[in-house]
Amino acid sequence: MPSSPASSVPSQAAPAAQIWLTSPVIDYEPVPQPFPSSAPTPACPTPSGAALHRTSSRSLPSPRPVHREIPPPRSAVTFAETALRRVIEVIDRRRPIAQLRPLMTPFLIDCVVARSGAPRAGSATLRRVRVRTVDNAMDNPVGSADEVSAAEVFASFTRSGRVHAIAGRIERHQNSWRLVALQIG
């Protein structure tokens, strides 16, 4: 009659051997050697304790001024979402190229057309769009300081299970916005 697994275990546990899970660390650092008496003295002497604990006569630099970032206008955010969605749909050949003309410069339209020629596996879906205003003092010297004339656009989109990035710059053009730079990753 075969024995069951429970009957093969001895009734009293044998004392287990002590197993070490760590080993001692061997010191690979060489023993410090004294300088020979013929060696030149170091160029930089060791500072004294008093020199280490004296107060400095130098003044600390003033903290950086707080940069007040102006939130982008709602019209810029809406334009950015619409423009990037249309760009992705034109690349996927779900929209005609003519719908990009009022949104971007002619050079960028040519770049998007060239990009749409490559074969694609699956359609892209725009995920998240962020818009950030840029320094108005450089971009709009004549306008008011609080008027936003340009913004940077960052977005992510997915295609065939992979996440891609797209970035660009929008600027005021007449009474609307226009995409003037575009980078698709």
Rank of each mutant, 00 (worst) to 15 (best):
P61K: 00
E152I: 05
V25P: 01
A114N: 15
V90H: 01
Y28M: 04
V131P: 01
Q99H: 02
N175D: 15
A118K: 06
A80C: 01
R169H: 08
R93G: 14
V134Y: 03
A83K: 09
R64S: 14
G122K: 15
P72N: 10
I97R: 02
V134S: 12
T55H: 04
P61W: 00
P32R: 09
V9T: 07
A51D: 12
P61S: 02
V163W: 08
E81I: 10
R94K: 10
L126R: 14
V131W: 00
R178S: 05
P102G: 08
P40H: 06
P63G: 01
A181R: 08
P47Q: 03
V87P: 00
S123M: 08
P61A: 02
L21H: 09
W20R: 13
D110Y: 02
R95I: 11
F157H: 04
P5Q: 12
L103H: 08
V112I: 00
A16N: 14
S176V: 09
I70H: 15
P65S: 03
Q183D: 06
D135T: 10
P73N: 09
Y28T: 06
W20Y: 13
F35G: 05
A43R: 11
D146G: 10
N136I: 04
P63W: 00
D139S: 08
P106H: 09
H67R: 08
V153F: 00
P63R: 00
R130T: 04
A167L: 04
A137F: 04
V129R: 03
R54E: 11
I88H: 08
G161R: 05
P45C: 10
L52H: 14
V131A: 01
R159K: 03
I26A: 03
F154H: 07
P36N: 14
I184N: 08
Q183S: 06
M104I: 03
Y28P: 01
A98S: 12
L103M: 13
E81Q: 08
R93D: 11
Q18Y: 11
P45E: 11
E69S: 14
L182A: 04
H67A: 13
D146T: 10
S56K: 03
A98N: 15
A14D: 13
C111P: 08
S48Q: 05
S59Q: 03
E81C: 07
L103W: 07
T22N: 09
R95Q: 13
C111L: 12
R120P: 06
P5T: 11
I109W: 06
